[in-house]
Computed example of a mutant assay.
Amino acid sequence: MRITLLAVGKIKEKYLVQGISEYAKRLSRYCKLEIVEVADEKTPDKAGDAVEAQIKETEGRRLLKYIREGDYVVALAIQGKMLDSIELSKLVENLGIQGESSLVFVIGGSLGLSDEVMRRADYLLSFSKMTFPHQMMRMILLEQIYRGYRIMMREPYHK
């Protein structure tokens, strides 16, 4: 399976770059992983709703350029469905069984995802009702995908 992590913004913190790199290396045994970053928009202090909506739309258009027609899109959204690690593993495994060969996980910027990206998504996934830094979510997501593959393969790690 080909998995794409599509995200807004660049990772600046060295510890996150190292963690993401480590999980990308581990995942290379199980899938073809691609990480795609699109530019983020600067949000002015005290930006109004209209400005924030425009920023999300601009970032959303950038994200949508990398989503192909046959991709199965999982958008990370606070209003999405919460799964445990085993359920996420089963979701990825079942998509493969159903013939999905290209899975795209989308992480928005600090304001979230545009309505257009949310409509394009085939599945909305939430990791928590809490808000996490979007840069940190990349490492958390990759760790959970790696954990999921270990569960699928019945290999030690999941405890």
Results as ranks from 00 to 15, higher is better:
3 I>C: 01
148 G>D: 00
14 K>A: 12
97 I>L: 10
2 R>S: 01
27 L>C: 04
33 L>N: 03
46 K>C: 10
81 K>V: 07
111 L>E: 02
145 I>C: 05
143 E>P: 07
107 I>H: 00
127 F>E: 04
134 H>A: 13
138 R>T: 08
126 S>C: 06
100 E>K: 13
6 L>V: 05
10 K>G: 06
39 A>Y: 09
7 A>Y: 09
10 K>F: 13
3 I>R: 05
146 Y>S: 02
106 V>Q: 01
73 V>Y: 02
105 F>S: 00
148 G>M: 01
59 E>N: 10
146 Y>P: 03
158 H>G: 01
122 D>V: 03
9 G>Q: 13
104 V>L: 03
155 E>R: 08
21 S>E: 11
34 E>P: 04
90 K>F: 14
105 F>D: 02
110 S>I: 10
41 E>M: 09
68 R>D: 12
84 D>E: 07
146 Y>N: 02
111 L>T: 01
59 E>M: 06
34 E>Y: 06
89 S>F: 00
71 D>K: 00
37 E>S: 14
82 M>L: 09
42 K>S: 03
118 M>W: 01
36 V>K: 10
3 I>P: 01
138 R>H: 14
90 K>R: 15
149 Y>I: 00
66 Y>H: 14
42 K>L: 12
60 G>S: 10
155 E>L: 15
154 R>L: 00
25 K>M: 11
35 I>Y: 09
33 L>E: 01
65 K>P: 06
53 A>L: 13
72 Y>P: 02
5 L>H: 02
138 R>C: 05
157 Y>I: 08
112 G>H: 01
48 G>V: 00
94 N>R: 14
105 F>G: 04
57 E>F: 15
33 L>S: 00
69 E>I: 09
9 G>S: 13
153 M>A: 14
142 L>Y: 01
63 L>M: 08
117 V>N: 02
40 D>C: 12
48 G>Y: 03
81 K>E: 07
139 M>W: 11
71 D>G: 14
110 S>F: 03
7 A>R: 14
95 L>D: 05
78 I>P: 06
85 S>D: 05
134 H>C: 14
40 D>G: 14
120 R>T: 04
47 A>Y: 04
46 K>I: 02
158 H>V: 08
155 E>I: 02
17 V>W: 12
131 T>Q: 13
35 I>F: 04
139 M>G: 13
108 G>F: 11
132 F>R: 15
38 V>S: 03
154 R>I: 00
6 L>Q: 09
113 L>N: 01
77 A>K: 15
145 I>H: 05
25 K>A: 12
21 S>A: 12
98 Q>N: 12
155 E>H: 14
64 L>W: 10
126 S>I: 10
72 Y>W: 10
18 Q>H: 15
31 C>P: 04
73 V>G: 04
136 M>Y: 14
118 M>G: 09
2 R>I: 09
49 D>T: 11
7 A>C: 15
